[in-house]
Design a protein around this nucleic acid. Structure first.
Length: 933
RNA sequence: GGGCGAUUAGCUCAGUUGGUUAGAGCGCACGGUUCACAUCCGUGAGGUCACUGGUUCGAGUCCAGUAUCGCCCA
């Protein structure tokens, strides 16, 4: 079958049509994602910024490319939250690399999902009263193509809503022409290299799906079954007839397979049966006489110690049969009905036959017993049918040599798996790997490019037209028949990192972007997919297909339940985005993302993320609106004048530098959750809560030198710009929209998506600690006010002792401190003794600073004074406790001699600080008591 | 049977080489019409870091074992 080629979509952004455009600078009071996201995505598409070689790309061609090939979602339906998280994480990495100037390729794709797609379509057909068989192969495949076209549109639309900055021009499908060719060439290569072979073997057969499946697709399921004891009659060698009185009792969980028995086995050292070895027994119903054999595999403790051997229907029996040269008659058809036994059971379902056989044995008097039995049976991952081991001629890939090289790739660290602990799982699976059954008796997939001549010779070719003649006997093509089977869907997936880039051709993309950078996927398909990509990639291309494997965890519901359609707890990402926006969804999902770790996801996390987007929106709205009138609305971005910066401005810049540094470190560690936490705190708790608040009063102060106000505004703009850049990979839409509302540098591009990632600025520790002291003071005053239950709105007179080292900063920040502490006038004192202490005075000990606050005249409330004293006594008790602890530590000889000097010095500083604090608190309390007297 | 993970505030989770007042969001309590944001602001309460033992000057963090829950492999 020649798959229909899949072209990139041309109906771009179709999901967003009808959305009213809003002027960028006109920011509404609340952030409404729906008004913004569609327009932004359209702009990105129009600017052609997703492709590394797009017209709008600002990539530095000298930097190494960064490539993520998207794990192609199955075209079986719509995407769920897990997909949204994966896309968000992949997109985050790609956007980050793109902003750092790397040519960044995010190559999207779709998977035909052979068995999964057939399972879904078969379900749809069943509801229509039709079936795969009733339609026939051609009609069925036509139907499948219609189905796939529909789901494809839904899936691609969902990914755009999430904000995937994928290069849609390079969209690929595992069933397109290029993939089909890659599959044929790969298989031909494996065949020629002796790594693909065809043989009759016992395979896992799913009677529902009517195909073999690999052992990975068999789910071991514990169940309570029965263990039946059945008497087989020994053959009297003199007469050649069964002896009615001499029997051997075998134990079996599958009496219907009696029809395929070719031996009875006992343990060679089992004295109970020693004399029987070599004799023959008669198998009931089929009247076959089979030997009693001795074999080590028999467990003497199991059942009666004698077991029946059915080589065609049990893996252990198959091995035993081979060792003893036993025949292996097949007794089941593809649909798991009994067939070809020549008994009355032919045509019956395997379980109907089981009941009949048990009943018939009982009637014959040969059923010796039945008891409940705990066992593990294999079920089909897809259809849940009970898997039937069956002898079939199938194609296999020899995995041992491939696995050895895959192991070498991880052991040598050429491929790193995150989190690292999965390397153990990887090691275990690859060292115990079995050959891979790659043929499937399905229709939707890549046909195996193998042809057979009437003599059974095999010809494998990658030629799309098929072979010209039999490789062995040279019979012409018209006498050859192509294998009816298709490949396991994971075979084409295993080629994905390079088939998408043009392999087997040496295309420019292949040369440029292969090997790829990071493979992000779920840990549940590490064997199905990751291992096969590494094995096939190394063999076929000579290189590891990627250097990092990032394994995501599962998204669970708020109760920790796995999301599934049957439980009805599946969340549609589109609904979530309608409600909260794509950015909030992305932020929430990334916030909880730790590699290899599942996360619970619910509305609470989403709310928080939505609020954060709104906070950012309003912060930008404030900054944009606070532009001093001396700066033109369309002014080009200027750096603030360093000489005009106040402490708050320097603090903001230093904190931004700290944040860039921390975010860089977290990104390098793939700690994306940490990135969101860092930015949340920096933006909300630092920039908004303190930075904006401290600078507000300066911005509004008409009495100031315009240069100073401008420097303040440019600082707010600069730091906000930095945060928007840092946050862009996580929340691309809102950051892009807001970035448009603030001035840019002359060197900046039009769009944030292709703007440069910020460099680390200069940290100024002295300013950070100075400003932190004043923040402590503000917190202290607020706290004292609240504890003393004073009216929040009233202005309180205050005095503060400010050491000369902090004097200049204090003078500049005084109006801001007054405003934030609601303390005015705020007088500076040079010594503690100079503080005015009267009735009801509140005392504040805040780090280096000490202050007093006077309650409003006439409102001196004895109760308030009492509350304040209680607060200070609490603080004192606490400080004293810490001091005792600190002193005990320093008194410890071992600590002082063995701990690193820096730690000891730190402890001494801490002690001194506590001594000072305790002293000041005691002093203050004593003072207060004296004034009350 | 083998392996892995989780166990930290009422709930959901951070806590990267061991360094000393263990953090956040939500929830809770009290208070707020301060001109970006009530999708907000301020203040506060709340934790013997599952348990037992060990290593260490020092353990949420390292080691051994136990318990509960979950996953993978056979």
């Amino acid at each position: 079958m020649v798959p229909r080629p899949v072209r990139p979509l041309d109906e771009r952004g179709v999901l967003f049509s009808g959305v009213e455009a809003t002027a960028m600078t006109d920011l509404p009071k609340a952030y409404t994602p729906r008004d913004v996201e569609g327009r932004i995505y359209e702009r990105w598409l129009a600017a052609d910024v997703f492709a590394p070689d797009g017209a709008g790309s600002t990539a530095d061609p000298d930097l190494p490319p960064f490539t993520i090939i998207q794990p192609p979602p199955n075209v079986t339906g719509s995407l769920h939250l897990g997909h949204a998280q994966r896309t968000a994480v992949e997109d985050l990495m790609v956007r980050h690399a793109r902003m750092r100037g790397h040519p960044a390729l995010f190559l999207p794709g779709l998977d035909h999902a052979s068995i999964a797609a057939q399972f879904v379509l078969d379900g749809i057909l069943a509801r229509e009263g039709a079936s795969r068989q009733s339609l026939g192969r051609e009609v069925y495949l036509e139907r499948m193509r219609e189905f796939v076209d529909a789901t494809r549109t839904v899936i691609l639309g969902q990914q755009r809503r999430v904000g995937a900055s994928a290069d849609w021009e390079r969209l690929r499908f595992t069933m397109d022409d290029e993939s089909a060719r890659a599959v044929r060439v790969a298989f031909e290569r494996l065949y020629q290299d002796g790594l693909a072979y065809r043989t009759e073997a016992l395979v896992n057969w799913c009677p529902g799906c009517r195909t073999s499946v690999s052992e990975l697709e068999v789910v071991p399921t514990p169940e309570t079954g029965s263990l039946w004891s059945v008497r087989y009659h020994l053959i009297d060698e003199a007469t050649g007839l069964p002896d009615p009185g001499a029997t051997v009792t075998v134990a079996t969980t599958r009496p219907e397979t009696i029809l395929g028995d070719t031996a009875v086995a006992v343990h060679p050292d089992d004295d109970r049966y020693r004399s029987l070895v070599g004799r023959r027994v008669r198998i009931p119903f089929v009247k076959r006489d089979v030997p009693v054999i001795a074999d080590d595999v028999v467990e003497r403790e199991f059942g009666t110690g004698a077991v029946k051997i059915t080589p065609a229907h049990d893996p252990d029996d198959h091995a035993t049969g081979r060792r003893h040269g036993l025949a292996a008659p097949t007794i089941l058809a593809d649909d798991a009905t009994v067939a070809g036994t020549g008994t009355a059971y032919d045509g019956l379902d395997r379980y109907v036959a089981r009941r009949r056989i048990v009943a018939d044995l009982a009637e014959l008097g040969d059923l010796a017993g039945e008891q409940p039995h705990e066992m593990v049976i294999g079920r089909c991952q897809r259809s849940n049918d009970i898997i039937e081991p069956r002898l079939k001629t199938q194609w296999f890939v020899r995995t041992e040599p491939l696995a050895a090289r895959a192991l070498d790739a991880t052991r040598s660290r050429r491929v790193r798996i995150l989190p690292e602990r999965f390397e153990k799982t990887w090691e275990h699976w690859l060292t115990t790997i079995r050959d891979w059954n790659v043929s499937r008796q399905l229709w939707w997939g890549h046909r195996i490019p193998a042809w057979y001549c009437p003599d059974g010779h095999v010809t494998v070719t990658a030629d799309e037209a098929g072979p010209r003649a039999c490789d062995v006997c040279e019979r012409p093509a018209d006498q050859l028949v192509q294998d009816a089977d298709i490949f396991d869907t994971w075979f084409s997936s295993g080629l994905w990192p390079f088939s998408t880039l043009g392999w087997p051709e040496e295309t420019p993309d292949y040369r440029r972007f292969y090997p790829t950078s990071v493979m992000e996927t779920g840990y549940d398909i590490i064997f199905f997919w990751v291992a096969r990509m590494v094995m096939l990639g190394i063999h076929l291309t000579g290189e590891e297909p990627f250097h990092t494997v990032y394994l995501s965890g599962l998204i669970r519901d708020p109760d920790g339940q796995k999301m599934s359609k049957t439980k009805g707890n599946v969340v549609d990402p589109l609904g979530v985005m309608d409600e909260a926006g794509a950015d909030a969804l992305r932020f929430a999902l990334i916030h909880g993302a730790t590699p290899g770790q599942d996360q619970r996801f619910g509305p609470v996390k989403l709310e928080n993320a939505r609020h954060f987007a709104n906070k950012l929106w309003n912060a930008t709205r404030f900054v944009a609106g606070a532009r001093p009138s001396t700066i033109a609305a369309d002014a080009e971005r200027r750096l603030p004048d360093a000489a005009k910066l106040g402490p708050a401005e320097q603090w903001l810049r230093s904190r931004a530098a700290a944040t860039v540094e921390a975010v860089d470190a977290a990104m390098a560690n793939h700690a994306f959750g940490e990135v969101t936490r860092l930015l949340y705190d920096a933006i909300w708790s630092e920039y908004c809560d303190w930075g904006v608040e401290l600078t507000k009063i300066r911005l509004a102060d008409e009495s100031l030198d315009p240069d100073e106000r401008e420097a303040t505004w440019w600082t707010l703009v600069e730091v906000l710009d930095t945060y928007l850049r840092l946050l862009h990979p996580v929340m691309p839409f809102v950051t892009e929209a807001l970035w448009a509302a603030i001035p840019h540098r002359a060197t900046d591009p039009e769009l944030l998506i292709v703007a440069r990632w910020p460099g680390v600025g200069e940290r100024v520790e002295a300013i950070e600690s100075a400003v932190e002291s004043f923040l402590e003071l503000i917190r202290g005053i607020r706290n004292a006010r609240s504890e003393a239950r004073l009216e929040p709105a009233t202005w309180l007179a205050a005095e503060v002792v400010v050491p000369t080292t902090l004097g200049p900063e204090f003078e500049v920040l005084r109006p801001a401190i007054e405003r934030l502490a609601r303390a005015r006038p705020l007088e500076r004192r040079l010594t503690r003794e100079a503080l005015t202490v009267g009735e009801g005075t509140l005392a504040i000990i805040a780090g280096d600073l000490e202050a007093v606050v006077q309650p409003p005249v006439g409102s001196a409330d004895p109760a308030a004074a009492e509350l304040d004293r209680a607060r200070m006594e609490r603080d004192l008790a606490e400080a004293e406790a810490w001091l005792i602890q600190a002193r005990e530590r320093l008194a410890n000889e071992a600590f002082v001699s063995k701990a690193p000097p820096a730690v000891v010095a730190g402890a001494r500083d801490r002690e001194a600080e506590l001594v000072d604090q305790v002293e000041r608190l005691r002093d203050r309390l004593a003072h207060q008591r004296s004034t009350e007297r």
